[in-house]
Computed example of a mutant assay.
Amino acid sequence: MNNILIATDYSENAEKALQYAILLGKAYQAKIYIIHTYLPRFVEPGIYANAEIMQQSLNEQHDAYQAKLVPLANQVEEAGLVCEAILELNDVVSGVFDAIEKYDIDLLVMGRTGSGGFLNKLIGSNAAHITAKSKIPVLAIPHQVEKVAIEKILYATQLEFDENHILSQVFEIAHKLKAEVNLTKVNASFEPDIQSDKQFIDQINTAFVKENFVIDTITADSVTEGVFRAAATHQSDLIVLAAHHRNFLSQLIDPSKSKQVIISSHLPVLTFQC
């Protein structure tokens, strides 16, 4: 992990997201990019404005937003990390995806809510879009988080796909942060149980024979309920999910489960794409 992007709307919750970006950045010695996107606000309706006045308004907005990025970048640099602040005249989703591509971002970190509506829109109406289209992991931080720490990681799975390539990244994060990993198979009502659990459990145990972990099972009325109950049982401070959106079978299994967990969780949720 070399480059981490934090999306900010300058809210209190975006500040928490920044602290998580710094936490992971220090673990990996990664470069932190901070992005804020905005659309122009011109003069009040009914007030005459020529081109000069409109350009002045744009310049003032740009300078105001740029000034707010400076103390955030300073926080990152004071933590001993390299930081680059990005201010884009763009909509939220386009700006974030453009930055991911341009700066070769490995992880996107964002607050789940924000007073300005910036990240509300991103994780609300655009949650399905960013989850489906993002090629990199996305870490969503809810406003309920009080302690910025990753010490106990819950990896929730339904054991329907080979997820070893994701698990290897999860164990890497755990090693970097000296965190423990718990794997939980969620059996939910009305969810397909097509593949043999033993097959995937054997694969995991063989692939990660040197890792210290336990795979347990929880039965619940829904995947979301099962994930949250497992997190409470293990006293987890990070939930990790693998989102499967690439084939017809995954559509039958319901691609919105990861979105439901992200929107409802009181814990940070890290989503990987398969």
Rank of each mutant, 00 (worst) to 15 (best):
N2E: 15
N3Q: 08
N3I: 05
N3F: 06
Y10A: 01
E15R: 15
Q19E: 15
Y20F: 15
A21K: 11
Q29W: 00
A30H: 03
Y33L: 05
L39S: 11
L39R: 12
P40C: 06
A51I: 14
E52P: 07
E52W: 04
E52V: 15
D63G: 00
D63C: 06
A67G: 05
P71T: 03
A73V: 09
A73N: 03
N74Q: 10
Q75C: 08
Q75S: 09
G80R: 13
E84Y: 02
E84G: 08
I86G: 02
E88F: 09
E88M: 07
L89D: 03
G95Y: 09
K102A: 11
K102Q: 11
R112F: 10
R112T: 12
N120Q: 00
I123R: 06
A128G: 14
A128Y: 13
T131G: 04
T131C: 01
A132H: 13
I136F: 04
P137T: 07
V145P: 07
E151H: 13
Y155Q: 01
F161R: 15
L167Y: 01
K178Y: 03
N182G: 12
K185H: 10
K185I: 15
A188K: 02
E191R: 09
Q195S: 13
S196P: 11
Q199H: 15
I201E: 00
A207M: 04
F208A: 01
T217M: 03
T217S: 06
T219S: 10
V223S: 09
V223N: 03
G226R: 12
A230D: 05
A232W: 02
T233I: 15
H234D: 13
H234P: 00
D237C: 08
L241D: 02
L249F: 12
L252D: 01
I253M: 12
I253H: 11
P255R: 12
I262P: 12
I263M: 13
S265K: 02
P268Q: 14
P268F: 02
V269S: 12
V269E: 00
C274S: 14
